[in-house]
Write a protein that binds this DNA or RNA. Sequence first.
RNA 1: CGGAGCGUGGCGCAGCCUGGUAGCGCACUUGCUUUGGGAGCAAGGGGUCGCCGGUUCGAAUCCGGCCGCUCCGACCA
Length: 514
Amino acid sequence: MAPMAKNIVSRAQDYPQWYLDVIKAAELADYSPVRGCMVIRPAGYALWEAIQRDLDRRFKETGHVNAYFPLLIPVSFLEREAQHVEGFAMECAVVTHSSLEKDETGHLKPRSELPEPLVIRPTSETLFGHMYAQWIQSYRDLPVLINQWANVMRWEMRTRLFLRTAEFLWQEGHTAHETAQEAQEETLRMLGVYASFAEDFLAVPVVQGRKTESEKFPGADTTYAIEAMMQDRKALQAGTSHNLGQNFARAFDVKFLGRDNQLQHCWTTSWGVSTRLIGALIMAHSDDEGLILPPRVAPTLAAIVPIFKTDEEKEKVLAYCRELAGALCGAERLAAAEKRDAGRELLTVFTDESACQRVVLDMREGRAVEKHYHWEQRGVPFRLEVGPRDVDKSAFVLKTRFDGTKTFHEKGSASPDWLREQANLVQTRMLERARTFREENTVVVESYDEMKAALAKGGFVRCWFREDPEVEARIKEETKATVRVIPFQQPGGTGKCVVTGRETSEQAIFALAY
RNA sequence: CGGAGCGUGGCGCAGCCUGGUAGCGCACUUGCUUUGGGAGCAAGGGGUCGCCGGUUCGAAUCCGGCCGCUCCGACCA
């Protein structure tokens, strides 16, 4: 039994603190001097880059292209769509001045007031609407399928690293279509992309479904979401896809001449995921020892830790470790790494250049045990431990981060294919483990009393529910839980709403949420 | 934005009540011994005590204001 990490509090003792400790120990992020903002450190940003790489490929595969729209938006744009203003007005950062000057005390203060205030984008539907109105003339111009990778700002009252920060990174897809049906298909297609991405890449199982009226995006006809369960059994919305109907097209006059020679408004969609996914990744998989990364996400797939006493052993073990790195990554990659990292204490060998994944050989001074903790806390999926005894037996020890297992292998078995196989196996098992956890913490209830009892224990609570904002408000008041999603997967038939007893054909998932 | 707690070398804390010129553990540097799950000894380096103001001969300590972080609530994709 491994001793507890000394810089990380246990999940059982203090879950929110554990989350912050893991981020700190893995050096993922730090606080900025400005309230609510965070610095994403290299180890954290590498996770975002991995997410970007994989998702961007999926967007391209579904026919989308990238563009960049600017940070600043005229305030007047926000006013055009009634629901949209209402939803975002309170959390906008507003730019009112250009340039600075010194005041009497010598401190800088804003100088020239702008003729029209600008908001820092909280999202870009309005700007896309404005541009689409100019770019779209005919049905031949449709569909328009643009995505952008950007930062946005929402002046949140309460922030949490990765989960809700004032500024965050995300992607926002904005599409325009000829028909309502095409827009609906696009909305669901992208939700599907998010769902398979979350499960295949992040190993985070999600429930796909529709949001209720009270939970939908301001300005949308319908909002769909993927919802994940964290280890404290709370729900986390991991991605959203909105069918905007003709709301923004009307507000920004996005019209086209149809096949029937009639001028009509486009049907638009928008969809996004953010750096919140990194929070999901942390809370779905990590343990009391620190971060655990699924192999596909991990920038460092494996760390080789040499163990030796004497100089003689050191020489022998390090040479052996190099051979092992070569076996795992290929001789050419090892040679390239040796050249680049010559003289360094960390030898970094790529296993896959396009995914930017690598194996690291840790030749730093110091005790092997400390290196174990070092890589363990940073979530590296595999550690290969090599001591003199292993060299003599032509073997190595493989420690698997996610389940703590220790297995013995012959050196001859190490190869790029072997490593990939290990990675795929762990990737699959991490998804299974997370899914099992979710299933074990999801209950179906038949009455409001049962629901209250279940929510008190935590987890997803599934039940027949007739959508009604007032009833949702009452449930939230009494239990703090909200409808997370009305899942696509329904049992069929009808039942009685657990709160009102009214007939309904839908079951909803209730949970406490982030 | 309301309530509570906290803010002292990189991290975790003591000192504050009862003012007297800053300390402990870890980490860091150097050397030696060590190295299969958080080693030992020795010698070092590092802090305008969150910020601003007040009281005082003297403030980490007392008083006022502000800022930040965490938790709870409200708000919110």
